[in-house]
Design a protein around this nucleic acid. Structure first.
Length: 598
RNA sequence: GGCCCUGUAGUUCAAUGGAUAGAAUAGAAGUUUCCUAAACUUUAGAUACAAGUUCGAUUCUUGUCAGGGCUACCA
């Protein structure tokens, strides 16, 4: 592959020697892409070198610029603005780029390099349905998996299902007390929603019971620990850890309902996992490791029997690892799960946890504990921390019912896609299956792009009205550009215009807009690499969007199928085709499908 | 209180220490006898505040102000 920036650096190094007798270390020569509002493709910044050149910036820039145009095949023109030397690429190099892009099997995607990684995402609790926050998590994890793969890693996609613990016991006790034996089937409610309803019922009824106890003279703190429901849930948790038969049966039944619901949601958003981990299968391993740690004096036991780790030396405070009654807490199973995963997949180099930034502290503690326990790989664990999704009226709070349900949201997007598409009325030649497929692609494209275009680390606002906009910087806009190109390709084919094996050598002229497209596509491998290394799908969204913008501008300016059917026509079609493939491949990394017509 | 994160156009997002701070949307004005107007073109509008480091700071450091998160024998 051609490395333009490196080649420019090398020739600049020569220019500095020949023109100024200044031997500059190539690492100190920085070549940036030229910002949009200036003319050129790449920019050499002179400031750091001025003191060695003994010329003012303008003069030095001109001298170097002239040298490059004369001595390099790559550079055709230049301009100097203050201390910035902006360089234009020559037809020769652009043709080379075009050739290497079009001859590549899948431009930008690397071959497997033998390294294995594990990506965890979604990881729901089994007491409530998936919501908007999960969607950011899921799309992020899914997209990162694809990006890592494109960057040459073998990826294992997993989730940890928090299937045990006090939260599911709350749903269980509520179901036992209030359900009259109803089931998702008998009520025709989706399984995860059904169980979630009982969780909500628990919270509501429990509040009532607390109030009643306070009325009877109990203080609030005591009351909140002594309701029939709280005691019932705690009893169930104990019975569960003792493997009580009827408790296990109830637990299994309710979890099964939830999984059916989850799977249907995952299917609707086109996401799947290579392996599921269940907290119920890993928490014992966690306990075991904590006991070993205790025996090795890594942890300490309080008088009441609870087990703690002291991380105050690491500025992380004391953290509980086992309750006084011996039951495990959240971090217990995380310890077990991590260990189990490295047992199951001994070749994985690292593990990536896609979890919200509210748990930054939790993961620092977790990794530190694993390190203390002597696991070398603990240093390779990475918390892919992302910001919360806020609603216009504030944060989502599942306990207060202020959540955007994932299924509702997806359905709403599909409905909106349908309405917008029908309004535009370009769908006469679609049959009904095509339409369903199209609405799905647009709806999910809009949603995924909306959630992925923001830097993961930052919190983001979800505005329901804006998210369903299909204009501007949105998924459907990029999909539309793709569909447009497909339409051109179809027409080229009916006209028998050759573009597939287009040889660019004889082409005489390349317009500026065409050059910009080639150069942009040329950046794709770089973008994938940076995006992979920095765990940031938003760079891919930005890339795809910019490409679509560049293409639309070109499309507006230059008629592609122009009736001449000459060398230039074939080139424009071939370039359009390359653009469409790159749009498709970049959106693929976001988990977004493209329609051939829309 | 302690620890962590974030403050950029009216709004939602960009900008490996570099230029005249980019987009989108909302606003104003245009483009369709022409390959899909979900498009294109033009226009107006922003770095919370104050110091410091630097040739150069939205970016790094410190302080102030504002917002969010964590600090549970919840997950």
């Amino acid at each position: 592959m051609i490395n333009i920036q490196l080649e420019i650096k090398q020739i600049i190094k020569k220019a500095l020697i020949d023109s100024f007798n200044y031997d500059c270390n190539i690492q100190n020569i920085s070549i940036d892409t030229t910002p949009k509002n200036f003319e050129g493709f790449y920019t050499f910044i002179l400031f750091p070198h001025l003191k060695y050149l003994k010329f003012n910036p303008e003069e030095a820039g001109n001298i170097i610029g002239k040298y490059l145009v004369k001595n390099s095949e790559i550079i055709s023109e230049f301009n100097v603005v203050k201390g910035f030397l902006n360089l234009d690429l020559s037809n020769v190099i652009l043709k080379d780029l075009f050739k290497s892009i079009s001859s590549s099997k899948k431009w930008g995607y690397k071959k497997l390099d033998g390294e294995e990684v594990m990506v965890e995402f979604s990881s729901p609790n089994t007491n409530k349905p998936l919501h908007l926050g999960h969607l950011r998590n899921i799309f992020l994890g899914d997209s990162m998996s694809k990006i890592l793969e494109a960057n040459g890693k073998k990826v294992h996609k997993v989730q940890i299902i928090n299937d045990r613990g006090i939260h599911i016991c709350k749903s269980m006790i509520a179901w036992k007390l209030f359900s009259d034996g109803k089931t998702p089937k008998s009520t025709d409610i989706k399984g995860d929603k059904f169980v979630g309803d009982y969780y909500v019922m628990y919270e509501k009824e429990n509040q009532k019971q607390i109030k009643d106890l306070i009325k009877d003279g109990m203080i609030e703190e005591e009351a909140s620990r002594n309701t029939q429901l709280v005691k019932g849930a705690i009893d169930l948790l104990k019975l569960w850890e003792e493997k009580d038969k009827s408790t296990m049966e109830l637990w299994e039944m309710m979890n099964k309902w939830v999984y059916e619901g989850f799977n249907s949601t995952y299917k609707s958003i086109g996401v799947n996992f290579d392996k599921n981990y269940y907290e119920s299968e890993t928490y014992l391993l966690g306990k075991e490791n904590i006991k070993n740690g205790l025996n090795n004096n890594l942890f300490n036991k309080k008088d009441d029997g609870s087990v703690w780790v002291d991380l105050s030396n690491e500025k992380l405070d004391n953290k509980i690892l086992l309750r006084s009654d011996g039951t495990s807490v959240y971090i217990t199973q995380d310890i077990g799960t991590a260990i189990k995963r490295f047992q199951d997949f001994p070749n994985i180099k690292k593990q990536i946890y896609t979890v919200g930034n509210e748990q930054d502290y939790h993961f620092k503690v977790l990794f530190k504990i694993l390190e203390k326990l002597g696991y070398e790989w603990a240093k390779e664990c990475y918390h892919l921390s992302y910001g919360m999704v806020d609603l216009p009226d504030g944060k989502m709070k599942s306990r207060e019912g202020n959540v955007v349900d994932a299924d509702d949201l997806v359905n709403h997007m599909i409905k909106t896609a349908k309405i917008r598409t029908e309004e535009l009325g370009k769908i006469d030649d679609f049959d009904s299956d095509d339409l369903i497929d199209l609405y799905n692609k647009i709806a999910l494209g809009a949603l995924k792009y909306y959630l992925l275009r923001v830097d993961p680390k930052k919190k983001m606002l979800f505005d329901p009205d804006e998210s369903i906009d299909f204009h501007g910087n949105t998924g459907p806009f990029i999909q539309y550009t793709y569909a447009r190109i497909c339409s051109i390709i179809r027409r080229a084919e009916t006209l028998n215009i050759e573009y597939g094996n287009y040889k660019i050598d004889d082409l005489e002229n390349i317009s500026l807009k065409q050059k910009k497209i080639i150069d942009h596509i040329y950046q794709f491998p770089n973008i994938i690499e940076i995006s992979s290394d920095s765990y940031s799908p938003s760079l891919i969204s930005q890339f795809a969007y910019d490409l679509a913008k560049l293409f639309n501008s070109f499309y507006q300016d230059e008629k592609i199928i122009d009736g001449k059917n000459n060398e230039t026509t074939s080139f424009k079609i071939a370039l359009s085709h390359l653009t469409s493939v790159t749009i498709k491949n970049s959106l693929e990394l976001l988990g977004v499908d493209v329609p051939k017509k829309m």
